[in-house]
Amino acid sequence: MLRVLVRAQKAVGLSALVLVTVSLYMVFVYAPREATGDVQRIFYYHVATAWNGYLFIAMVALSGLLYLVRKDEAWDAAGRTAAELGVLFISLTLILGSLWARPIWNVWWTWDPRLVTTLILWFIYVAYLLIQAGAEGSPRLKRFAAVFGIVGFLDIPLIHYSVVLWPRGIHPSVLRESGGMPFPMLLTMIVSVIAMTLLGLYLWGRRLEVEELKQRVQRLKEQLLWP
C-alpha cells in the first residue's frame, strides 16, 4: 500500500508544489487582514503543520499495530519514517506557535493545554525515535517501538484531558472561536492543510524510498559476502 507513495512520488510532489504555491498566495494576499494584524497569518500554516503532526503520529500507531500482526518489516519502516515526519511537523508547530504567541500574548511560551499536549507529544515521539535508533537488527526492540507507538497514541487524549483539568491551564482557546471565521480565512486554512498534507506525503514517499534503497544495499552486501 505504501509503495504507492514511493511510486507516485513525482505526481504527489508536483501537486504539492502547485497547491503550496496557491496556499502561499492565499495566506499572504487572498486572506483578509485580521484584527490582531498580519501576524495572524501564521495561523494557517500553524494549523497545517499541527494537522500533519497528528496525521503522522496516527500513522505510527497504525503501522505499529500492523507490524505486530503481520510481522512485515515494511510496516516497521513505515512507523519509523512516519515518526520522523511527525517529529518534524510537531517541531514546526511548536516553533510557529511560539512565534505567534510572542507578538499576541507577549510571551514565548504559555502553559496552555494545547501547547502542553503538543510539547509532551514531541517528547513521546522523540523517545520513539530513540528506541528505533537502537533497534536496527533487533526484532525485539522493533516490537517494543511498535507497542510504544500504540500506547503513546492511546495516551494522547488522557494527556490532553489531564492538562485541561490542571487549574493553571486556563487560557482562552483560540481555535474554539473559529466557528465565526469568515469564509476566505476558512478556505485559506483548508487549502493550506491540504497542501501541507500532500507535501508531507511526498516527503514520506521519499523517506520510504531511502529505506528501500538501504535494504537493497543490505541485500547486495549479503550477496557479495555469501554468494
Binding site: 523517545a127 500506547v151 495516551d155 494527556i159 489531564s162 492538562v163
Partner: peptide, 17 residues
C-alpha cells in the same frame, strides 16, 4: 537512560492526577 525518557512523557496524567 532510555526507561525514564520513554516512560515519563506517558505518565503525565498520573503525575498531574
Amino acid at each position: 537512560l532510555l526507561l525514564p525518557v520513554v516512560l515519563f512523557p506517558l505518565l503525565v496524567p498520573v503525575i498531574l492526577g
